[in-house]
Simulated assay, not measured.
Amino acid sequence: MNYSFEYIDIILLAMIAGFIFLRLRGILGKRTGFEGKAPSQFEKVLNNIQTEKKATIKDTFDEESQKEFLKGAKIAYETIITDFSDNDNKLIASKPLLSKKIYDQFEEALQERNKRGHFAEITFIGVNSAKIKEHKKIDKILNVTVDFVSEVITCIKDKNKKVISGDPEKIKKIYDTWVFSRDTTSRNPNWQLVDTLT
């Protein structure tokens, strides 16, 4: 009789232990091999929001994007102006910054200058201001018009280094309106000068 009571006690204890285990498992959950690896639903939603936000900034050309653009536009402006004045009459540094149309126009002007035996001397003082006049998006192409005010010392000399026009001692204020363009779907972040307005 004593043995039968012992078996009943063991069975009861096993049932209680099993019940407690099931309760704990239900409350605490169970570990899997993917724990900490698969992103939660919240993370997926957050990533989607961030992706959409980046796309919106790209499409709307917001204030922060405009500030970054103007920094690059000033550098491009100085590069193109000084490259156009080099004595070799070749566009090297600024070529990637120019559309084919503008490159051809500048190249033609340089060739004409070279035929006459003339060359330009430009000392770039700095950009006084660069302001976005307007920006328009047509399909995937974003065009941004910028008004530049800069100061330079410029003159044209002949092959004997005689000054033909300009003043090598005088600072001149220059007003330019340039149009930059970029394909917003392209991985290439660079802009190109596509037009110069008077």
Rank of each mutant, 00 (worst) to 15 (best):
K131G: 04
E108Y: 03
E121M: 11
E112I: 02
S85F: 11
E78I: 13
F84R: 06
Q111K: 07
N114A: 08
Y77V: 00
D104M: 11
K131R: 08
I81Q: 09
S99Q: 10
A109Y: 07
I132E: 00
Q111E: 08
K100V: 15
L98E: 02
E78T: 12
S99V: 06
L98P: 04
L110W: 04
Y103S: 06
I92C: 14
I125L: 13
Y103L: 12
I122M: 13
F106W: 07
I122F: 09
S129K: 04
S129L: 04
F124V: 11
G126I: 05
D86R: 11
Y77M: 01
G126S: 07
A76Q: 04
D88N: 14
K74D: 01
E108Q: 08
A109M: 14
H118V: 00
L98W: 04
I75A: 12
Q105H: 05
A130G: 03
R116K: 13
T123V: 14
L98V: 12
D104T: 10
F106A: 06
G126P: 09
S94A: 14
R113H: 03
N87F: 15
Q105R: 06
I80F: 05
E121D: 05
I122N: 07
L97W: 07
S94C: 13
D86S: 12
Q111Y: 02
A120W: 02
E112M: 05
R113L: 10
R113V: 02
I122P: 09
F124Q: 07
A93Y: 10
S129P: 04
G126E: 04
N114G: 08
D86M: 15
